[in-house]
Amino acid sequence: TFEVERIVRKKIVHGNTSYLVKWKNYSSKDNTWETEDDIRTKYGDLVDDFEK
């Protein structure tokens, strides 16, 4: 199971928000862009903290 360590960046393309996710126990080269809906479902607190 993958676990988010932190959110690195945010991008908005054509009105759709995605977050660059750093995965726990993986290197930064393994970071992936994930949709806001996918990340918010399980890691809403991390998204809220990133947006502060």
Rank of each mutant, 00 (worst) to 15 (best):
D37F: 12
S28Y: 12
V4E: 02
Y19W: 03
S28C: 15
T17A: 09
R6I: 12
D30Q: 13
D38A: 13
T35Q: 09
V4M: 07
D38P: 03
E3D: 08
V4R: 00
W23A: 01
H14V: 08
N16H: 12
E5K: 00
S28E: 15
K11P: 00
R9D: 14
D38V: 12
D49F: 10
V13D: 09
Y43Q: 03
L46H: 05
D38T: 12
N25C: 09
I12P: 01
K22V: 07
I7A: 00
E5Y: 03
Y19R: 00
D37S: 13
E5Q: 04
G15C: 06
G15A: 04
S28F: 11
V4A: 13
K29R: 09
G44T: 08
Y43G: 04
T35P: 12
K29H: 10
I7L: 07
G44P: 15
N31Y: 15
R9G: 15
N25R: 06
T32V: 03
K42I: 09
V13N: 09
Y43E: 03
R9C: 15
E3I: 10
L20N: 01
D49Y: 11
K10H: 03
G15I: 02
R40P: 01
K24I: 06
E5I: 06
D37I: 10
K52G: 07
W33F: 02
V21Y: 00
G44H: 09
F50V: 02
K10L: 05
D30C: 15
Y19P: 00
F2Q: 14
G15T: 03
N25T: 08
H14Q: 12
K22E: 07
N31F: 12
L20P: 00
V13M: 10
R9A: 15
T32N: 02
S28I: 07
S28D: 14
R6C: 15
S18N: 06
Y19N: 00
E36L: 07
V13F: 06
I7C: 15
S28R: 05
T1G: 14
D45T: 12
K29E: 13
E36P: 03
W23R: 01
H14R: 11
R40A: 06
K29D: 13
F50S: 03
E51Y: 05
K10I: 06
V21P: 03
I7K: 00
V21L: 03
E5D: 07
D38W: 15
E36F: 07
V47G: 01
I12G: 04
S28V: 09
D45L: 10
E51R: 03
V47H: 13
W23G: 01
R6A: 13
F50D: 01
E34V: 15
V4N: 01
S18H: 15
E34K: 05
K24T: 07
F2A: 14
S27K: 10
G44R: 11
K52L: 12
V8K: 03
L20G: 00
L20R: 03
K10W: 03
T17R: 04
T41Y: 11
E36G: 08
V13R: 10
K42M: 11
V13Y: 07
T35G: 06
N25L: 06
D48A: 11
E36K: 05
E51T: 05
I12W: 04
K11N: 04
W33M: 01
V8L: 13
W23I: 02
D30S: 12
K11R: 13
E3A: 05
D49H: 10
K42Q: 11
N25M: 06
T32Q: 02
T32C: 03
D45R: 10
L46V: 08
V8A: 02
E3R: 04
T41C: 11
W33Q: 01
N31P: 08
K42S: 08
G15Q: 04
V21N: 01
S18M: 15
V4T: 01
T17D: 02
S28N: 12
K52V: 07
T35L: 12
D49T: 09
E5G: 03
I7S: 00
N25E: 10
V8Q: 03
Y19D: 00
D49S: 11
K11D: 04
S27I: 08
H14C: 14
K10V: 07
E3Y: 04
E5N: 00
Y19E: 01
N25P: 06
I39G: 01
N31K: 05
K42G: 06
V21C: 03
T1F: 14
W33D: 00
D30Y: 15
V47D: 00
I39F: 06
D30V: 09
N16V: 15
E51V: 05
F50G: 00
R9T: 11
V21F: 00
D48H: 07
W33S: 01
L46R: 03
D30E: 13
T1V: 14
T17S: 06
E3L: 06
T35K: 12
W23N: 01
K52N: 11
G15S: 05
V13E: 12
T41L: 14
K52H: 09
N16F: 10
W23Q: 00
E36A: 11
S18L: 15
S18G: 03
K11L: 08
K42C: 14
Y26E: 10
E5L: 06
T32W: 00
V21R: 00
T35W: 12
K29L: 13
K24Q: 08
K29F: 10
V13Q: 08
S18T: 11
I12K: 07
N31H: 10
F2T: 12
G15H: 06
K22I: 05
T17L: 08
T32F: 01
D48L: 10
E51P: 03
K11S: 07
W23M: 02
W23Y: 09
E3K: 03
L20Y: 09
I39Y: 01
V8D: 02
K11V: 07
